[in-house]
Design a binder for these strands. Sequence first.
DNA 1: AGAGAAAGCGGAGGGCCCTCCGCTGAGACC
DNA 2: GGTCTCAGCGGAGGGCCCTCCGCTTTCTCT
Lengths: 225, 225
Amino acid sequence: MSSPEATPAAARTGQADRGDRPVRAHARRNRETLIAVARATFAAAEGTVSLESIARDAGVGIGTLYRHFPTREALVEAVYAAELDDVTASASTLLDAFPPEVALREWMDRYAAFVATKRGMVDTLRAGWASGRIATPTTRERITTALGMILASGAQAGTLRADVDPEDVTAMLLGVFLSTAASDRWEQTGRLLGLVMDALRPPGARTPPRRGGDAAGGGGNRPSP
Amino acid sequence: MSSPEATPAAARTGQADRGDRPVRAHARRNRETLIAVARATFAAAEGTVSLESIARDAGVGIGTLYRHFPTREALVEAVYAAELDDVTASASTLLDAFPPEVALREWMDRYAAFVATKRGMVDTLRAGWASGRIATPTTRERITTALGMILASGAQAGTLRADVDPEDVTAMLLGVFLSTAASDRWEQTGRLLGLVMDALRPPGARTPPRRGGDAAGGGGNRPSP
DNA sequence: AGAGAAAGCGGAGGGCCCTCCGCTGAGACC
DNA sequence: GGTCTCAGCGGAGGGCCCTCCGCTTTCTCT
């Protein structure tokens, strides 16, 4: 995802390529092809996906796939990270539109929906999350940042606790997804997220009736998709 | 332990029931050897364990291992289930000794500690939990039953919510373990269990200062980044 | 005791994972 | 353009997973 290495202004070749060409063109293209094929394959497949089939479909050798993505997790994370922007970006959008505690629940739902579409890679994603191999520096941090923004806003408004570490909430969410997002336990995911919400409200502010709509003045189930 | 149907060890009693085929003595011994070897190997190993090495160490062919345990999960669950009794049994013991909400937290801690010792099989356990392949009929149910006992007791005492499904709490716990029990995030596990406790208290009964910036009771010395 | 049946055994085999390494050709420099 | 060089390529190879099937051993019945 990043181009760390910096070739010292190799720009002056015949055709200037926007000033920065650290990687060979063909290598970059291979990488992109691999991600594209992987995304499609992961989305289509239900169970495990063979990396060799991805390499084959992308028209490269298995060695090339492993050159670009040293582990299965690396490839999965690349696909996952590439699509995560929508989720993280929606945090501030939601905060503009709703009070923090409503925005939080809504954001959780969106994240859950996002994860639910990752069928073909859930297993790997799961293993990677759990072991910290995935998302420690990159992805998880982005999630935690988005989450932290909402939590801080709610803390200021007094509708969310101020004494929780956003990282703990991230872990909690991943845990909920890990334990429910695999099968068809979609409603259970919703109930568990409700429990998480309950844990995040300040002592006095819990809404007694649990089922139904949490309301809070704005309709528990948001109108948006 | 499962032991689907244990015919009286009619290894070679003169008369055996004809409707009911006893398991051959040697087959049973093989099964037990496999579980014993697997338990030792899983406990010793840190990462993934080769099933072929288990079969080899048990002195049987790989085919025999797969005959007894058709999937890796089946073997892991057999080992796991065999040691689960201590945990489930402790539920009623704890209820005798403590008020329900204290017993609940204590029980969670014990379960967490138990899972934490399962190092060599966490990955498989995780995948099995998440997919429902493990523990759906057997193990998970035992956990849920133990948990339900504590929850019911707390509900009656008014110190725990009455409107939560024990199965949801089981899923929540598994989620917490799934997302933290892998690495050394032991203290995070504690904090997350604290959040779960908060979610399970009835609206009025939350203890305001207890957890938070500092820690829950014992040694939450986690530095927040 | 002897024989027949089938439960149970073991390992070959095919597929996937990931590593390693010799070769090719893109790009830099002349 | 021509040459040099190493980034990048591809696939062979070793290990593990799991299946399949012919052979062995145990148990039952006579």
